[in-house]
Design a protein around this nucleic acid. Structure first.
Lengths: 112, 112
DNA sequence: TTTCGTTATGTTTGTATATATATAACGATT
DNA sequence: AATCGTTATATATATACAAACATAACGAAA
């Protein structure tokens, strides 16, 4: 029996989605590129979609996850706060643990 | 911090989705009503959608999950096999365990 | 003060998905 | 053989979502 258990986890704050896999991916891309528009390009999603996600994240989070600047040298940019970086690490850790946990549960299906 | 960790799990077989929350919901409704059309009505989804889901389930599963009959007394119907019933129980068990596991992981976010 | 690439936002277009509608096949019961 | 409610399937319509396009605002630096 080659069944697999897959999962998607996400963090909510007051019934609003804060972080999921896609949002974490976006934050990582912002951290690497220093810019929301470059992050969107690297993920092959529209700038508008990326902006909407980031806006939703920052509105849901207790503390700012990024600091965005308009104009100036290079036109502006976006960078993660320490809080944002810590959230990413926590999410990845929990997600990985969840995968491992579910792998252990597989035998319950194989025994049927 | 009232963050919550939510999850969706599903079982795949050879890269095809076998069971998720919606599909399990459908199977339970079939078990209660004895009919695919009645199950669809009880879930407020179209018969076609319900049929497509059930068809996908039975094509992905190693053994039949339902036995469907056309014509005859009452026009026909659908009922779960023992294998189907066992799969539902296993899915619910694993899903519940996953929720409890993730609840324990919450402190990792609260400590940030 | 002009330039530049970025953030921020609205509007239009396109696509994928869900819904609605229609119809055939079926078989026990009458 | 006529009836009935179901399964099974196709087609057309509607809706939700994503993508594409366009444009304003911004501020450091030249």
């Amino acid at each position: 029996m080659d069944y697999k258990i897959k999962s998607r986890i996400w963090i909510e704050s007051e019934n609003n989605v804060l972080l999921g896999e896609g949002r974490v991916h976006l934050l990582k891309a912002i951290n690497e590129t220093g810019s929301l528009s470059k992050a969107a390009k690297s993920m092959n999603i529209s700038y508008k979609k990326a902006w909407g996600l980031l806006d939703s994240i920052n509105k849901s989070a207790k503390k700012p996850v990024t600091i965005n600047s308009i104009g100036g040298k290079g036109g502006g940019g976006a960078e993660l706060t320490d809080y944002g970086k810590a959230l990413i690490l926590a999410f990845d850790d929990i997600n990985k643990n969840c995968w491992e946990f579910l792998d252990k549960q597989l035998e319950k299906i194989e025994n049927i």
